[in-house]
Design a protein around this nucleic acid. Structure first.
Lengths: 207, 207
DNA sequence: GTCTATATTTCGATAGAC
DNA sequence: GTCTATCGAAATATAGAC
């Protein structure tokens, strides 16, 4: 691949990252192609040269947001230099860092919103990229079950108890983005530590 | 209050309920005043006779969605005909029925989206109507703590572990609204029962 | 690959008759 | 209280020069 090809890839990725930030802040319908072009410092027509339309650009944003996370979780699951409990703890920290650091927790809400306009998008990502993240986390928990450390009654519910509070924290951050009292109303570190501790307690095998 | 007044109240409530359903399905920016008027079988100009603008109509939808829930939870907390565990269990069922029955779990996502356009809305409802629901649930849990049945380390995290999975389930329903495999991909009853059991286990005092 | 200019539709909101 | 008609702005998307 030559220099031009690499630059094209970089440019495309730059567009996707900027677009994702705009979608996260203003929603799918609330983000215009003009606003994205403005944030990139380019003209709207130039944006349409890289992506055929708004829907395609949005799908690219979802792929970008979730594909990387999936692989990072799998790398943690494969790291046998840690105990299973440490692997799970590291994976949960990774999820919090990614979901809150880039406000990626708004993505499920965005997809739910866009699903009314782009029918295929909902099932495609619930059963695709979401399922991959679920599987990566559950793989670590299955390691703990095999080792006799963990016990899980309801796997589907556990997934919701892992991702639900993280997604809700991200939405709350967005909700309070214009508030000066955001830090006191939503103590993120406290919620994060408490969430991790309650999760660990919930799956730790007793006896 | 005369007949005309009552009809006006009813008409206003009818508009709010229909609007809320439209906002939930298509998002704040994605829902036009024309679409709401069409769903009501009236003209757009008639809609503007009842509400001065889209923002005011949206705020009315949020109030309608959350004010009733708050009072129903408080009624459960005050019912001493049940054990504390049964009160909490009933309150959680009430939350699931309301949040999933009317897809009210999309409201936090809607408010997060609208917060970028209506700056006051985020803090107002996080610190207002949300906080009232949190307090109503925590009041029941505090009854259990006082009775020696429950023990809670991190109250903020517990609130996220109660509402997070419910909100996420509601968003997933929206996400899969166009899917024929929704029931198998998202077994709502299974998730609900598992969530309740894990919550109960997490706050039950041991020893 | 980026630009200016524009086509077409839809948006929130209003005026005024009835 | 509901309607028809309409305004100005902004939306997605395209045409075509450079």
């Amino acid at each position: 691949m030559g220099v031009e090809g690499e630059q094209t890839v970089t440019r495309r990725r730059e567009i996707v990252l900027t677009s994702a930030a705009e979608f996260i802040r203003s929603g799918y319908a609330g983000t215009s192609m003009s606003a994205i072009a403005r944030a990139l410092g380019m003209q709207k027509a130039s944006l349409y040269h890289h992506f055929p339309g708004k829907e395609d650009l949005f799908v690219a944003c979802i792929d970008e947001a979730f594909s990387g996370t999936h692989h990072r979780l799998e790398a943690i699951a494969a790291d046998r230099g840690m105990t299973v409990r440490d692997r799970l703890n590291t994976a949960l920290d990774e999820l919090y860092d990614i979901y809150l650091g880039r406000e990626m927790g708004m993505m499920p809400a965005l997809i739910a919103e866009a699903a009314a306009r782009i029918p295929s998008i909902g099932e495609q990502f619930f059963d695709g990229l979401f399922a991959q993240q679920d599987a990566a986390i559950m793989a670590i928990i299955d390691q703990g079950i095999a080792a006799g450390d963990f016990a899980v009654d309801n796997r589907k519910a556990l997934v919701h108890m892992i991702f639900g509070p993280i997604v809700m924290a991200s939405m709350s951050v967005q909700m309070l983005s214009g508030s000066t009292r955001a830090d006191s109303l939503l103590p993120l570190d406290e919620v994060r530590q408490g969430h991790k501790q309650m999760l660990m307690a919930a799956i730790t095998r007793r006896g």
